[in-house]
């Protein structure tokens, strides 16, 4: 059989280069406004609180809670056909913004405490979440 096609790669963007570098190092980085300290995600030009464009890139705690999810049963890109069914989880990060990641665990529920896990794959780093270890939180 033919090899699985490569996963789509994120188009390069100056605004988010630091985010992807962070993920490749195993860190989930968020933009934090250099003026007023409000964190934001996905990476964008301006802080919508104070309209400042300076940012610090700060590591998220990695802790969050499940906001919602879907289980994909149909692959709209051939790279994912062999992974069906797969789960995408939307997480409220402790810092406020949300993140989307893959979920390889069991049953999901809104509010379930989770933590980030970053898997390095051929196409690039993959943001995942897993059940937070109660003892560690």
């Amino acid at each position: 059989m033919t090899d699985t096609p490569a996963r789509p790669e994120p188009p390069p963007s100056a605004l988010s280069a630091a985010y992807w570098e962070g993920l490749r190092r195993g860190e989930l980085l968020l933009q934090v406004c250099a003026n007023c300290g409000v964190p934001r995600h996905y990476p964008r030009l301006l802080c919508c609180e104070c309209y400042h464009d300076g940012v610090h890139w700060c590591a998220a705690s990695g802790r969050g809670r499940v906001h919602s999810w879907t289980v994909a049963h149909y692959a709209y890109h051939p790279a994912f056909a062999a992974e069906l069914p797969y789960t995408l989880v939307t997480v409220d990060l402790e810092e406020g913004p949300r993140a989307l990641g893959r979920w390889y665990g069991g049953a999901l529920a809104i509010g379930l405490p989770v933590r980030v896990r970053i898997v390095q794959r051929e196409a690039g780093p993959e943001l995942c979440f897993e059940v937070a270890d109660a003892a560690a939180s």
Partner: peptide
């Protein structure tokens, strides 16, 4: 979506909207 979600397999409207319905 293209930059941050498509690489994870969140590629098409059905997948993108489904979490709204689930919630």
């Amino acid at each position: 979506v293209t930059e941050f979600e498509h690489p994870l397999g969140n590629s098409a409207p059905a997948q993108i909207y489904a979490p709204m319905a689930r919630r």
